[in-house]
């Protein structure tokens, strides 16, 4: 991973709401093309951090540098980043195709271009046959794919995902995991994935950033985190929880071990 160049450099980012310090001078670097998970319980500041990265929230202090350019104050749509929200936030009155097209049309692409590109995106996420469906007629997994296609259509080189699996059932989650990895491989996009699910973070990520109360507890590969947990928090929140899961599984299905 060290051979890759730095894609995003976050330096001393803080955020305070009234009395509460949500982010305490957070600094880290995201490598080009990597899959980085931000893992932590609710209230640890991970969603706030994500919103600062995309530009939906201003940071109190600190800088965000992408490809050597300071984008701390750039508008969200001028950062070359996309975001997939937890609840997808699809445009409910538009079909899957129109959801993907809509932003393209705003960007001065011709109608035909936008249409063709949107169709291609839906094909990539395997939804060509549902192009004319309204979101309410799609399953949770399909809705999420539309949201991803909508984001991919603008060709961002970084995609942020805010707990995108939390509304899906277990089987769909597992399927979407491998789809996400496939998409990342074919587009070469850097992905920053926010989750509170340890298992998900370990299954998907090149590196995991573990957060606690607005600070980074540890940022490393899954393997190194297992081997050398940085502190008690990482040990209990991440490793003990994972171990408990494995133990309970092996208790009932000894063959799995």
């Amino acid at each position: 991973m060290d051979s890759l160049k730095d894609k995003l450099i976050i330096e001393g980012v803080s955020k305070q709401y009234k009395e509460k310090e949500v982010l305490k001078s957070v600094s880290f670097t995201v490598k080009d093309g990597e899959f980085l998970s931000i893992l932590g319980p609710s209230g640890c500041g991970k969603t706030t951090l994500l919103r600062i990265l995309i530009g939906l929230l201003p940071a109190d202090t600190g800088t965000v540098v992408k490809d050597g350019v300071d984008i701390t104050k750039a508008a969200p749509d001028k950062r070359g980043m996309g975001i997939v929200f937890q609840n997808y936030a699809l445009f409910e009155n538009m079909t899957a195709q129109q959801n993907v097209e809509y932003a393209l049309k705003m960007k001065k692409s011709t109608k035909a271009d936008a249409k063709e590109k949107a169709a291609r995106m839906l094909e990539t996420v395997g939804l060509s046959d549902r192009a004319k469906s309204l979101p309410k007629n799609l399953s949770g997994g399909q809705q999420q794919r539309v949201a991803i296609a909508r984001t991919l259509a603008l060709q961002p080189d970084i995609i942020l995902l805010d707990e995108p699996m939390s509304a899906l059932d277990v089987a769909t989650r597992l399927a979407m995991r491998s789809e996400l990895k496939k998409l990342q491989a074919s587009f070469g996009t850097t992905m920053i994935y926010v989750t509170h699910d340890q298992e998900e973070a370990f299954a998907l990520s090149d590196r995991i950033m573990i957060m606690d109360k607005g600070e980074i507890s540890q940022l490393d590969t899954p393997e190194n985190i297992c081997r050398n947990p940085a502190n008690d928090y990482v040990r209990t929140f991440v490793l003990d929880n994972l171990r408990a899961k494995i133990d309970s599984l092996s208790k009932y299905a000894p063959g799995l071990k």
Partner: peptide
């Protein structure tokens, strides 16, 4: 609650999100 935020990240003006969505 995230529709306007989606618009911002996709470069769609708030007024268009209001009228179209």
């Amino acid at each position: 609650p995230d529709l306007e935020a989606v618009g911002k990240t996709l470069g769609i003006k708030r007024i268009r999100i209001i009228t179209d969505v």
